[in-house]
Design a protein around this nucleic acid. Structure first.
Lengths: 206, 206
DNA sequence: AGTTAGTTTAATCATTTGATTAAAATGGTT
DNA sequence: AACCATTTTAATCAAATGATTAAACTAACT
């Protein structure tokens, strides 16, 4: 019996994962209300009913995708801001490096998260106790201990995430306004990695 | 006959404007796919059919709202970046002041624009010939003429808009993570006005 | 080979939703 | 008051969409 269970799951995981992957792709691209379950089924190459067989409902599947997206976006941050081995400058570099790398792989993750968060504020972020993790973080302590600049840690935090993430939120706009194609945009983001670190450190000086 | 036309429009403008206002509110809050025409009708306090009587279709109405939103977001910028009376520092101050003030009135305008722009990239922004307006702007010239920093004008542009706008894009997240309420958030944004100007000027030095 | 648990499909349902239609209401003009 | 163009409404349509059902299929175990 146990064997049977295992085998069943081995088979199921194939399509189950395939559906979830398709769902992630479509949801992140079109959002909850813009996504039709048939889109996901087609993207996964399966029948519509299978989606409901594995995940019971569209909302259910969406919640899974959203949870994993939030984790992907915040998980690493939690570790970085509480790493007491790193100086403030090193943390800045690490956070910038992490988010710029993440954006290279998942450029439309932040717009997805921010869009859907507006519809259902609060409920989502709380899951990870981000409030405590950030407010009491080593990172925030270090910023407060900083020289005469005395920048509010919340401003500093918004700036570091914003400078990394905003260009990807606004990518279509930036490409049109800047008159550049995808390749030039990528190059721009490459050189930006170092720049954000520099700018953030300037905010601490003076 | 002419009188009749005027009176008819006077009457119509009342409800027509009422519908458009309701549409703006609902569309900006829920996006195109998240909005039902019945939501708009209810918000406007009118019958569903009236919406189609005045605007023919949901898409039509949406396009109007989107056009006006884009204008609201970009119109003023065009004048500011090409004002040859202003020094670079003064332009920075003016742009920051303008966008921070705009965000105070329309905090969820940028998320609306960026979300919907992803679904239909290019088509929208081109309308205003933003590419030419920006690339050949006095603003960009001034940045290029700047000292040894030689910051890419596109980076500088992304930064000034991003630093102003990102906190409002991420407002729900910021409130939760920062553990602050709406009032404290507003206060944070008040003090941010001056700070963004300072940070932007630091990017030009050195 | 037959049985059984688990998986997949085609067909269908019920609701939602954008849009239309025909009738009623409104208000100015004659 | 009767008439007319415009506006507004209630009722309805057709398509889209999330979900369910019953039947067909698959593969392990006997």
């Amino acid at each position: 019996m146990a064997k049977k269970e295992i085998l069943k799951e081995a088979l199921a995981q194939g399509t189950e994962a395939k559906i979830k992957e398709a769902a992630r792709k479509v949801f992140i691209q079109k959002g909850l209300s813009g996504t039709r379950t048939r889109d996901i089924a087609e993207e996964a190459g399966i029948n519509l009913a299978l989606l409901n067989y594995y995940f019971r409902s569209k909302e259910n599947l969406f919640n899974l995708v959203m949870l994993e997206s939030m984790q992907q976006f915040f998980m690493r941050l939690k570790g970085l801001v509480n790493n007491e081995e790193l100086s403030l400058e090193e943390k800045v570099d690490a956070i910038v490096a992490h988010y710029m790398a993440l954006m290279q792989v998942q450029p439309d993750l932040p717009l997805f998260i921010l869009s859907e968060m507006r519809q259902d504020p609060g409920k989502i972020v709380n899951t990870f106790q981000m409030q405590k993790a950030m407010a009491q973080s080593h990172f925030f302590k270090q910023i407060k201990e900083q020289g005469p600049a005395k920048i509010n840690p919340i401003h500093f935090f918004m700036n570091i995430i914003g400078l990394c993430v905003f260009p990807f939120l606004a990518a279509p706009m930036v490409k049109v306004i800047g008159g550049i194609d995808n390749k030039a945009f990528d190059k721009l983001m490459q050189e930006r990695k170092k720049l954000v670190s520099v700018w953030m450190k300037q905010m601490l000086e003076k």
